[in-house]
Design a binder for these strands. Structure first.
Lengths: 223, 223
DNA sequence: CTGAATCCGACACGATACTG
DNA sequence: CAGTATCGTGTCGGATTCAG
C-alpha cells in the first residue's frame, strides 16, 4: 500500500506518470529508443545512476511491459530492449526533447558527459518534430577521431539518425570529438566551425550549415 | 546543492525532466492547459495533493517561467495560468495521455475522483493525436444532471473540447454524472448506453457511437 | 473560505563498498 | 559484466495550524 508513486486519479496522464514518472525511468527509455543496450551501457549513458537504482528501474519497466530482458544462455551479457509498448513512449520523449531544446538548453557544464549518438538522434528527432524539410534527400556523415562514424539522413519526408544508402554522403564532416560536441551544444546563433572539416558539394554544405544555424542568409566558403 | 532532482546530463530530455519531472508538476500543467485556475481549484483537480506541496510546485513552476501568478488587488483569489513556455508542454501531456489511454487505462477505483471537463478534453486531445477524421464537422453536447454542460466539436480538421458555433448540437447526450463517467471510463469494446439518453439525426448519433467504440460495423436504433 | 506554513514519519534516492 | 548490501540524506504524505 505505497502511498507515494500513486496518484489515485482516474486520469490517463496520471496513470502514465505512475508507470514512468519516477526518476531515471524515462531516461532509460530515451537510451533504449536508440536500440538495445546492456546494463553497463545504460550505466554509462545515464551518468550518475547507481547500480541499485538502475536495477530497480529496469525491473519496474520490465514488470510494466515496457522493456524485455534478453540473456543468451552461455553468455553473461544481458541485453535490454524496448517492447512495442515501450516504443509507444517515443512521442513523450520527443515532446520532452523539443521542449528542452527550445526552453531549457545550456552549454554542457564541466564534467557532464555528452554522447555523439545522442546528438545525431536528437538532431533527427528535433527536425522531424519541427517539420524541417529540405528540397531533396540528403545524407550527412560525421567522422570523429575516436574512429566512430555517425550520420543523419533526410529521405525527402523524415529525418533519421543513420545512413540510408550505401553511396557516398552528400556532406562529410571530420572532427575531433570535443569540437563536434562544442558545435552541436552551442546555441544556433553562436555556432562556429573551429575544429570541423566539412567536405561536399558547396550547395549541400551550405544546406548543412543553414540547417545547423551557422548561416542565416549569407554564405560562407568552406571546402 | 541538491544532488537529487538534477541529472547532470547535457541532454535536453534530462534538462526538461529536471524542471517538470517531479511529482505533481506535470499534473499541474495538465489542469492549467484547460485554462487558468485558483489554488483551491487545483487542490480539487489534483486529488490527494497537500497544500504544502502544491505551494512548492507552483513556486517552482513560476520560477521556471512555466506559470504566472495573477492576483488582482482587492480580490483575495490568486489565479494561476500557463505562460507560452508552459503551453509548450502541451505535446508532452498529449503524449502521456495517448500512451496512458492505449496502455495504462483501467476503470476508476472507488474513491477516485473523475472530472467531466477532463473527459471531454481527453477525448478531443486523443482524437487529434490519432488523426481521427469525420466526413463533416460535428458538435456533440453532453448535459449532466449537475446542471453543467460539456461539448466536443470537430471543425473538419481538429477536435476541440468545447462548442464552436451557437446553433443546436448535432448530437445531444443527457445523463447523470455517474453514468457518463462509467461510459467514458469503460474500455471501448465494452461500452454500453445505460443511463445515457442520446438525441440527434440517426446518422450523427451512429457517428458519435462509432467514434466512442460502441458500434463496430453494425448499427443500433437509438433516438 | 482561500492560500498557505509547520512538524513528523515513511520511503525514494544517493554514495560507497562488495560479490557471483 | 551484472548486479547486491549497507547506510545516510532528501522528498514527499498526513495532520494540524494560521493569516487575510
Amino acid at each position: 500500500m505505497t502511498r507515494t508513486k500513486n496518484y489515485h486519479h482516474f486520469c490517463p496522464i496520471a496513470r502514465s506518470l505512475e508507470v514512468i514518472g519516477e526518476k531515471w525511468s524515462l531516461l532509460v527509455v530515451r537510451d533504449l529508443l536508440r536500440g538495445p543496450a546492456r546494463f553497463s551501457d545504460l550505466m554509462r549513458y545515464l551518468g550518475g545512476i547507481t547500480p541499485k537504482w538502475l536495477t530497480a528501474r529496469l525491473r519496474e519497466l520490465e514488470a510494466a511491459g515496457i522493456i524485455t530482458r534478453d540473456s543468451q544462455p552461455g553468455r553473461r551479457e544481458v541485453w535490454y530492449k524496448l517492447t512495442e509498448k515501450g516504443k509507444g513512449l517515443g512521442p513523450v520523449i520527443e515532446g520532452l526533447l523539443v521542449w528542452g531544446v527550445d526552453n531549457a538548453l545550456r552549454p554542457p557544464l564541466p564534467g557532464e558527459a555528452v554522447f555523439p549518438e545522442q546528438t545525431v538522434y536528437a538532431t533527427a528527432t528535433y527536425h522531424n518534430s519541427k517539420g524541417t524539410q529540405l528540397p531533396q534527400p540528403v545524407e550527412w556523415q560525421i567522422d570523429l577521431d575516436d574512429g566512430k562514424s555517425h550520420a543523419v539522413s533526410f529521405d525527402g519526408k523524415r529525418w533519421r539518425p543513420r545512413r540510408l544508402s550505401d553511396g557516398p554522403p552528400d556532406v562529410a564532416v571530420t572532427a575531433d570529438r570535443d569540437s563536434w560536441m562544442r558545435f552541436v551544444t552551442t546555441p544556433r546563433a553562436e555556432r562556429e566551425l573551429h575544429g570541423l572539416a566539412i567536405q561536399g558539394h558547396p550547395e549541400r554544405v551550405e544546406e548543412f550549415l543553414r540547417t545547423f544555424g551557422v548561416l542565416q542568409a549569407s554564405m560562407a566558403a568552406v571546402s
